[in-house]
Design a protein around this nucleic acid. Structure first.
Length: 331
RNA sequence: AGGUCCGUAGCUCAAUUGGCUAGAGCACCGGACUCCAAAUCCGGCGGUUGCGGGUUCGAGUCCUGCCGGACCUGCCA
């Protein structure tokens, strides 16, 4: 039986961090077995973030390396760069013609971006339409999404329905593929892990920096003196132990009890955590070094991804043009 | 294209209306405190006032030309 197809993408944000890994990438790695996967580096989407594009190539390289180091496999999945498939832009244009502005103006993400003062340009408003084009292009039946992307996917389904109604049944309505994203707060223990908050630990972080960053983590503010009892259930450091500790044979109950009863100094707790993280990320750092030393390998992977994605995209483009009585781009 | 308003530290804003060394909060860094971190208290870093020209004893402030942005009225497709 043919595997179902999924598509997902990330904006090229450079080197990824633990939050990216736990929140999405680790799930993608797992989905590779079960689904035919298209994973896209969304460099066109990245343009809503920045007008200064000088870093974009390096960010793309860095993210691709992290994907591979984390276990995305070019043998199993199609890894490609959005801007290398111009059909995305074409489909975006076509879909924009049948998408009411009011649908877009009520997207929570759009409203949030405006609230934080992001420039209200055409592209930002149309962001979910481009996303829809990305998904429909490959006729993905499922899309791995986090909580915040659900409204966008709902919009994609509406746009697909509308297109099908107007021009014929071409696009499947994409279903969300929910996963229990492991929520991990940043080092400050207050906001989600993000580069823009400078509270992140990169997957490729050097051991010395991992230790420095972990020692600076926010802890239970009620535990001030060494012998004060802690509240591990509320402590961000313990939540990291709970995520990473088990695979390294850490005695979680022991940490919990000792902290609670004031026998475990935060400093020791943090040093332990740093060691766990350093070990957990060691294979990742190794793999990254190999990939960094081999840029032609990366080029090859993207070239193959481009080829595979192009085939599908051209076919979809032809089908869409035909349905709309517009002449084919292939001549 | 024309009109109105605006541009000051990484961010948000001040500067007695032309007058002393352009200030404050947040952020950041350091110290005290703490087993650490946070909070708090001290201290520090941070500026060619968008760029150029002019008026003046003196310009962030007034005039002018560019650059950049917001809003309004149009023009072309």
């Amino acid at each position: 039986m043919k595997k179902e197809r999924i598509l997902s993408g990330m904006r090229p944000s450079g080197k990824l961090h633990l939050g990216n890994y736990l929140g999405a990438l680790s799930d993608w790695v797992k989905q590779q077995e079960k689904y035919e996967c298209f994973f896209m580096i969304a460099d066109w989407h990245a343009l809503t973030d920045r007008t200064d594009t000088r870093q974009i190539h390096q960010d793309t390289q860095d993210m691709l390396i992290d994907w591979l180091a984390a276990g995305l496999s070019p043998q199993e999945s199609t890894l490609f760069l959005q801007s290398q498939i111009p059909e995305h832009a074409e489909l975006h244009l076509i879909l924009s013609m049948i998408t009411p502005v009011s649908w877009l103006e009520r997207c929570p993400t759009y409203k949030e971006k405006l609230e934080i003062g992001q420039e209200n340009n055409y592209g930002l408003l149309g962001y979910p339409v481009l996303q829809t084009a990305d998904i429909l292009m490959y006729k993905a039946s499922k899309v791995p999404v986090g909580e915040d992307q659900l409204p966008h996917l709902e919009l994609s389904r509406e746009i697909a329905r509308r297109f099908n109604y107007l021009y014929g049944n071409i696009f499947p309505e994409p279903e969300p593929l929910r996963y229990d994203a492991v929520k991990v707060l940043g080092l400050d223990g207050k906001k989600k892990m993000s580069k823009s908050y400078s509270n992140e630990i990169a997957l490729s972080e050097e051991p010395r920096l991992i230790e420095k960053k972990v020692l600076g983590m926010f802890t239970d503010p009620r535990k001030i003196y060494l012998k004060d009892p802690g509240h591990p259930e509320e402590c961000n450091v313990y939540s990291y132990h709970r995520i990473f500790g088990p695979s390294w044979g850490k005695d979680l109950d022991g940490i919990f009890q000792d902290c609670r009863e004031g026998r475990l100094p935060c400093t020791r707790c943090k040093k332990d955590l740093a060691q766990v993280l350093i070990k957990a990320l060691a294979p990742f750092r190794e793999r990254r070094k190999e990939l960094e030393a081999n840029p032609s390998e990366l080029e090859k992977i993207l070239a193959e991804g481009k080829k595979a994605a192009s085939e599908v995209a051209r076919a979809t483009s032809d089908e869409v043009r035909k349905a709309m009585h517009i002449s084919s781009a292939q001549g």
